[in-house]
Amino acid sequence: MVDKRAIGKRTVISDSKSNVAISVRGLSKSFRLPTERAWGLKQAFFNRLRGVKGYKDQKVLDNINLEIKKGEFVGIVGRNGSGKSTLLKLLAGIYYPSAGEIIVNGSLVPFIELGVGFNMELSGRENVYLNGAILGFSNSEVEAMYDDIVKFAELGEFMDQKLKNYSSGMQVRLAFSIAIRAKGDILILDEVLAVGDAEFQRKCNDYFESLHGNQTVILVTHSMDNVKKFCDRAIMIEGGKIACEGKPEKVAEAYEKLFI
């Protein structure tokens, strides 16, 4: 079983002298998509028998090069399906690169989604510990910040209720309160953070504000306001390639032109 798919590499180093947080060279990613009814053992067997591949390789990212400096707040924009999320997942180590190299300098905390691993059958309290463990906190660390999390989420009296009895707004509030405690050298935030009502938006904004300048952040967003407000630099991805890179205003303009 020689797998020819993965020849790329992702390494995590810890070099405090270098001012580079993430370095990406010639990164490509292809997904192996099954063609008609190629799922299941039976079909796989017949496909092999007939010499049919049963899948096609779809290139989602093609030769991406980028470098992110420590302390930089970088926005990644692009249309739906342009490859932004795939890039994020590759940086986070969830997907494996098909070609090229990713070097991550320091610890990296990804928020592809809020409340990863949340379980509806568990109480709010139990979910805080579970989600905390998933974000890399020890039990004693979660214990130390538990009261702050509950207070920030404004869920004091509900913590012993099962999560399935929470409204969706309450769930997001709880997840967000845990998420913002996460400490890493590099934070990766997908646009999911920008959901919720006006009050929640304000809290998000405060959080981004507090990160600016102190932390290396990669933010994927569709909001050009956010790009202009928070980012030092922006990158636009189109069709799996970097189409535009530079000052947030310039990239925002290029992005808006896509839809004319």
């Binding site: 986070a92 969830i94 990804p110 989604e113 691993g117």
Partner: peptide, 9 residues
């Protein structure tokens, strides 16, 4: 699958 698709571990 929910964890595997969202975090690296």
């Amino acid at each position: 699958g929910d964890l595997i698709r969202k975090i690296s571990f």
